[in-house]
Computed example of a mutant assay.
Amino acid sequence: MSLQVKGLPEIPEETARVAWSAFPKGSLAMSVRDQLGKVFADELFAEAFGVRGAPGLSRALLSLVTVLQFTEDLTDRQAATMAVRAIDWKYAMGMELSATGFDDSVLARFRARLVEHGMERLVFDRLLEWCREQGLVGAGGRQRTDSTHVISAVRDLNRLELAGESVRAVLEALAVVAPVWLAETMNVPELALRYGERVSGWKLPSSQVKRERLATVFGQDALALLRAVWAPTAPPVLRTLEPVALLRRITVQTYLVTTDARGREVIRKREAEQDGVPPGHLRLWGTAASLPYVNSLVQRHCGLIVSVGPDLHDAVTTAARHNPRQQFIIVGSPVKLANVRSFPPADQSAVIRAIRQVAEPRSSRRT
């Protein structure tokens, strides 16, 4: 990802008019935007981000989004949704009212690049110091507002969402494949209350204690489901379902099962420094980590899903195999599926033509 020097874009006149009409006294996002341009410049990120390649979102803009999602306790997916539907966020980001936002994966890549170059402190400490001076982020008590905490808190929210969504995906799969078995084995009414709505639609707890408690509940549900599926009386086909395999890997990656002093079983979040990492063949790699997000695009009825490079290749191929009516384009290794068009990376003009062939009919239908 190469991010060209842009800084924060100018606020479109119509966006400003509608935002101030909706928020006569302003909002947190609007207050941050009005002064943020004086705090950061894209040049601060030159060490971590190249200046060559296709332009992307500005570094200052991604810093703004990361801090806003931290203050509002939002996952990456929720932050990307806010950029589409929240008028004050559009104001803060300098977006047109009709703008469709950005893909949530860019936020994770942005944070990873900062951490890789040791720049998370340089960037966010400067921003958060200004926020404290303006009274936008609390400076007293036990609240931590240093940059490392911002990165960690946002990452934990995303892990929490992934843990809950993986349980929900298994419940949906089991309800289709073995509804009678599921009803006889699990407490379906209770699970339906907990997972009936997508976790990405929740307002996740702001309290660390409540987050830990929710993570434990997700872990307990995951463990109960996996033990039920692997029980001798369970239909063997259940163990072949991809959502089940994904849940198993996520559970091993995220949780550790131990016993307390009284011999009772305890499930808690895995800490790499304290507990080590899971076995290599069970760690979350590309397909396991990416498939839920590719599936979310399918569920949003996107007209076309385009994958470039090897990182998402296996996840997109898996999603294409299970969603024959969804159209895909893969730039990279060829895939022989009726709903997938594959192109070599060098043939950029062919990719553009293929995308236009899908986009133009949809555009004409809207008009």
Rank of each mutant, 00 (worst) to 15 (best):
residue 205 P to R: 00
residue 245 A to P: 10
residue 166 S to W: 07
residue 298 V to A: 00
residue 239 R to H: 07
residue 58 S to R: 06
residue 320 A to Y: 00
residue 250 I to W: 02
residue 278 P to M: 02
residue 148 T to F: 07
residue 252 V to M: 11
residue 328 F to M: 03
residue 92 A to L: 00
residue 112 A to I: 14
residue 313 H to Y: 10
residue 120 E to G: 05
residue 163 A to I: 14
residue 216 T to P: 09
residue 352 I to N: 12
residue 201 G to T: 13
residue 282 L to V: 14
residue 178 A to H: 02
residue 50 G to P: 06
residue 23 F to S: 05
residue 331 V to H: 07
residue 44 L to K: 01
residue 120 E to P: 05
residue 318 T to P: 01
residue 245 A to G: 09
residue 285 W to V: 12
residue 285 W to P: 06
residue 42 D to C: 05
residue 38 K to W: 15
residue 145 T to S: 12
residue 275 D to S: 02
residue 292 P to S: 06
residue 272 A to F: 15
residue 65 V to G: 03
residue 162 L to A: 06
residue 340 V to A: 00
residue 147 S to F: 07
residue 73 D to A: 11
residue 93 M to Q: 05
residue 156 D to R: 08
residue 51 V to K: 06
residue 54 A to P: 13
residue 335 V to E: 04
residue 180 V to L: 03
residue 267 I to G: 03
residue 264 R to I: 14
residue 109 R to M: 11
residue 185 T to K: 01
residue 279 P to N: 00
residue 322 H to D: 14
residue 157 L to G: 03
residue 282 L to T: 15
residue 83 A to L: 06
residue 124 F to T: 12
residue 326 Q to P: 13
residue 14 E to D: 03
residue 257 V to G: 04
residue 200 S to V: 15
residue 149 H to I: 09
residue 293 Y to D: 01
residue 289 A to R: 07
residue 184 E to R: 11
residue 297 L to S: 04
